[in-house]
Amino acid sequence: MSTEPGQESGGKSLFSLQRRERLMEELRAHGAITVRDIAAKLGVSELTIRRDVNILADEGLVSRVHGGATLPSPLDRSTAGRATSHSYSIGMVVPSLDYYWPQVISGARGEAEVQNLRIVVRGSAYDAADNRRQVQALLDTQNIDGLIVAPDMGGEHGKELLRWLNALPIPVILAERRAPSEIPAHKLEWVATDHAFGAGMAVRHLWQEGHRMIGCLTDSTSPTSPHVVRGWKQAMNALKIPLDKSIHEDSAKLDNGDRAKHFDRVLELCRASGTTAMLVHSDTQAVAFVQHCVDRGVDVPGSMAIVGYDDEVAYLAEPAISAVRPPKSYVGKVAVQLMAARLAEGRMRPVHRIDLNPELIVRESSVGAPRVVLEDAL
């Protein structure tokens, strides 16, 4: 993380505020400044001055011009009607911008408007090294006061990333992530869906529909899957369904040809074990599994009941798939609420770690059909 002289532990540089005051003094005295001249006068880089000008322009205090800035002009329409400056800037790094996370971002942005906060979003990947690069880019260029991040926590790189986040001089809120107990991340706060609870809801729903052998199909590369598996196992134990005779298969990293063979194997295991229902994470995987069942003449839900997880595309299947729906927008909303409270109260506020319950959306794939032994269907 790049720093400037006089940077305080809270992440707000006092020198940067003084520098912007000098910029405003120069503007009031001369009506305009150039980036090159003011950088030389203050002994900082031109990039630093450009960032200052952008921040002041975003606050409606200056008008940007080529190579510098002027005092605001009524002819500058970019500042017309601009609201008062935001109290803080929050960086947000998520692993995807096209699945699951857009709703989280939307919830965060909506709450940020209420809290008068600025949200700066960067997309990343399910990769600890890229997560760190994106966070570092925010720290270097955006003058952020806090960070909301959904890091990859797998392996040693993931653990090192958590240690680094915990050591940052600004508050960090994890979204849909929890630091493992072996990492002493005493400063990290988080808001996450209780996915184990959601999986348990799905299992109990299938039990109430008459199913007595309920399998689980997950993707081990997903950070959510371990929690889904844990919830499935806990519910199965509570219902006294023998785990040693139950199906739990991993569908990670399968292309179309391998996936078809894999699903055929799953159906064969279901036939042999008398399994008539499956919990499938994610619901994109559930859609593919339903389509495979249809192609193989296995009636859904008559011969195989299915509940997906995430509820991003489950409703598009034929039949529409029941799915556990995490409160995605509320994850973003509550993360911003936590951040606003942390910035307002500082170190006196206790560390908060919040679980949100998902809901089960019941559709055609898991209800309303007579139970048929899969062996007969095949």
Rank of each mutant, 00 (worst) to 15 (best):
D219F: 08
G154C: 09
Y99V: 13
L117C: 07
C216I: 05
T221Q: 11
V93I: 08
L217V: 15
N357W: 00
A150E: 00
H66C: 00
G6I: 04
P72K: 02
R133Q: 12
L188S: 03
G332F: 06
C270Y: 04
I247G: 09
N256S: 13
E189M: 12
V313M: 09
E268V: 08
W190A: 01
M153N: 11
H186L: 07
M201T: 04
S85F: 10
H227N: 12
L360Q: 07
V35T: 15
E113P: 00
A40S: 12
E156V: 14
H292W: 10
M92Y: 09
E25Y: 02
G68L: 05
G210P: 02
P184R: 01
A192H: 05
I105G: 06
R122Q: 09
V229I: 14
T48H: 05
R325T: 10
V362A: 08
V331R: 04
E26R: 15
P102K: 00
V313F: 11
P151F: 01
N143F: 13
S322T: 09
I38D: 04
R342H: 08
S87G: 11
P184W: 01
V362L: 04
L27C: 06
K253G: 14
I119N: 02
L269T: 01
S322G: 10
R212P: 06
I90F: 02
N143Y: 10
E249M: 14
R259S: 09
V266L: 07
V300C: 06
E4I: 06
Q7C: 13
H30L: 01
E26Q: 14
S63H: 05
I55S: 12
W101T: 04
A167F: 08
D299Q: 14
P301E: 00
V266S: 01
L75P: 00
L97Q: 07
T276D: 13
M201F: 08
W232C: 02
A238Q: 14
R347L: 08
S251T: 07
R353Y: 01
S87A: 15
I183R: 04
S282W: 01
E375D: 11
L47S: 14
L117H: 10
T275A: 13
D58Y: 06
S246A: 14
T48E: 07
G158T: 08
L188T: 01
